[in-house]
Nucleic acid binder design. Structure first.
Length: 593
RNA sequence: GGCGCGGUAGCUCAAUUGGUUAGAGCACUGGACUGUCGAUCCAGAGGUUGCGGGUUCGAGACCCGUCCGCGUCGCCA
């Protein structure tokens, strides 16, 4: 038997017992007359002591130990009394070693899991087996496990059926870039890894399963971000005979449970809801961080009557002047910082510039813009923007989309920089009624904002053909702390409407039949009204863990270049494998270099 | 693909305006030490400054190219 207890388990009540522990040598403190070993496993740390009374065998065995050796110790649990270590859960006892066996030595490691010194992410990812030994990483993966357990319990309580769907599927041109898998059996054909199990879960509804869920792996071959991995995990949900309130209500309940069990938070339901249009108006983004205010103020009307020609021109051209009032920004942000923010909005969001003014004690503006604004006009702007002395006013004058993006960027940056909210606080809300379509200027056609199976609001069906830009969807996104934690829609269950949407998206009936014929057929075979949602599990775990990147909640994540630094994936393959798949490599300038 | 930050000892970092033999802490090795708990003290070993080219009397630093990591814009229905 390797162990009778774990390294996090022994307490005063065990004093006098003989026990066996196995684990990793976290730290050794070697003295002339006593050696102390902190033994670690995922449950905690226990101090092993080898003093003068120990046998020669034990002393000799201890002499060769190094960090991260895997050892087994048999010994007596003894009281530490006034030597107790209050920092350790097991600190009131220690193990007096009777025997010590090295189960496996360890070479010197690039970093020690027991150390709190920071280690670069590249090194951590290359030696992930060591990184994952670190207590913080173990806590995070345990938290993830706890969340998925709670989710599964909740879904089960609500009569959801866990169904697995294929990983090898069919490529569809809509949406993200697919990961492709060549077929050996079918010449010239490829599978695609699922971007989500969307169509399968709709088919499950048509098949009468009524309530489906799956914790599903999804794949999208797009560039990575702190909160985006090429393969990620969704809590995928679909329900029959429901409307959007039913789906949101279900997830409200789930969030209440998770927040209570994991964070000790009591959420009020229903979680607050805001329409997409309102979110864009007030925050410039469809996933606003509602932990703080500093909302966007539309000053276009004021700009239209302004003495300042640049603003007036923008307003008269049908564009927008919108701004933020940064509390105490006049004092907190130096001119140099404002210049950096100007560079940010120009470089990142294509804005033409950033207009600003500081509010002095008397309410008058200072800054290069001030001279263009008579005092009376300054006062009107101050009122509209609710500016107080010491504040900083920022404006973007541009088309709607650019003002949204740039002001959202500024709001997000400054909110964090000026600590306008408690980073530990949590805010859950819904953004609803997304547009059905957005116009793709490049392809000169409408594309589905969510996906092409989304139902329009009942009173907006009329706009589908007459004015697609006006049509709003039965869509809802769950937003936590400014992150899109999930999104869903009520689906189209009428094959005629579904065909119409395909047509609006520029598909001929033949194309629609080729790509989605099975869905159109299924919709004609008794499809119940249905809808669902998918939550980004990695993001939810990240937010509940209070972390700022998704890699730390995934055991084996990929780098920004989508590689695995530990295994070296992706790698080259044998010519024989390629021949079987009838794949030939094409030389590029890069591959020849 | 664009922009930004970074790459120096096993790890985390430093190195003045381009100037002697590239340093420190941790880790490692050896020694000392009567109970430590981030032990302490003494000594030691450890370097292709990511890679390639260039400028210069002289490059870790400057220039060009390239690779890698992170952030971000595009992209992600």
């Amino acid at each position: 038997m390797y162990r009778t207890h774990t390294c996090g388990e022994l307490r005063a009540q065990h004093i006098g017992q003989t026990v066996t522990l196995s684990g990793w040598v976290d730290r050794i403190r070697d003295h002339k007359n006593a050696t102390f070993i902190e033994l670690r496993d995922r449950y905690g740390l226990t101090q092993i002591v080898i003093d003068q009374a120990a046998s020669e065998d034990v002393k000799n065995a201890a002499r060769v130990l190094g960090s991260e050796y895997v050892i087994q110790v048999v010994g007596a649990v003894v009281q530490r009394g006034d030597k107790a270590n209050t920092k350790l859960a097991t600190g009131e006892i220690e193990l007096q070693a009777h025997s010590l066996t090295v189960l496996n030595p360890s070479r010197t490691l690039p970093f020690l899991p027991g150390s709190s010194d920071p280690v670069g992410e590249e090194v951590r990812l290359e030696h992930r087996y060591i990184d994952l030994r670190r207590p913080v990483m173990q806590q995070t993966l345990l938290l993830r496990n706890r969340l998925t357990k709670l989710i599964r319990d909740y879904m089960d309580e609500h009569h959801f059926v866990d169904v697995e769907t294929p990983i090898l599927g069919r490529s569809t041109p809509e949406g993200a870039r697919d990961y492709l898998v060549p077929s050996r059996v079918q010449e010239n054909c490829f599978y695609a890894l699922p971007q989500s199990p969307q169509l399968y879960k709709q088919i499950m509804m048509i098949a009468g399963y009524d309530r489906y869920y799956q914790i599903a792996r999804c794949f999208r071959d797009e560039d990575l971000r702190a909160d985006r991995q090429p393969e990620f995990t969704q809590l995928d949900v679909e329900m029959s005979f429901v409307d959007h309130n039913d789906v949101m209500g279900l997830i409200d309940g789930l969030m209440v449970k998770l927040a209570k069990e994991v964070l000790g938070l009591e959420l009020q339901t229903p979680l607050p809801r805001m329409t997409y249009d309102e979110a864009m108006r007030r925050f410039g983004h469809d996933a606003p961080d509602l932990r703080f205010g500093m909302e966007i103020v539309d000053c276009t009307a004021l700009a239209g009557q302004s003495e300042f020609q640049v603003f007036r021109g923008v307003a008269e051209a049908g564009k927008f002047v919108r701004g933020l009032c940064v509390p105490n920004g006049g004092q907190l942000l130096a001119r140099r910082r404002i210049d950096q923010l100007t560079a940010l909005v120009k470089d990142s969001y294509n804005a033409k510039g950033l207009a600003w003014a500081k509010i002095e004690e008397d309410g008058q503006w200072s800054g290069s813009l001030a001279k263009n604004f008579p005092v009376a006009e300054q006062s009107r702007w101050n009122t509209t923007m609710q500016a107080k002395p010491g504040d900083l006013l920022l404006w973007i004058a541009d088309d709607w989309a650019i003002t949204c993006k740039a002001l959202h960027g500024l709001r997000k940056t400054l909110g964090a920089e000026l600590k306008l909210y408690d980073p530990k606080s949590m805010h859950f809300s819904w953004v609803v009624e997304f547009p059905m379509f957005e116009f793709d200027a490049e392809e000169k056609r409408w594309i589905a904002m969510h996906h092409p199976f989304t139902a329009a609001k009942d009173d907006h069906v009329q706009f589908l053909e007459s004015d697609p830009s006006r049509a709003r969807a039965k869509a809802y996104d769950l937003v936590i702390n400014g992150f899109e934690a999930g999104g869903g829609t009520i689906r189209i269950h009428d094959s005629g409407v579904q065909s119409l949407i395909f047509k609006l998206l520029g598909m001929t009936p033949e194309m629609a039949k080729d790509r989605f014929g099975f869905l159109l057929d299924a919709l004609q075979c008794g499809a119940p009204p249905h809808g669902g949602i998918a939550l980004g599990l990695d993001r939810v775990v990240m937010l509940f863990a209070g972390l700022d990147n998704i890699r730390d909640v995934i055991a084996f994540p990929k780098t920004q270049k989508a590689t695995d630094l530990m295994t070296g994936a992706p790698g080259t393959v044998d010519d024989k494998q390629l021949q079987e798949l009838r794949i030939a490599m094409v030389k590029t300038a890069k591959s020849q270099a």
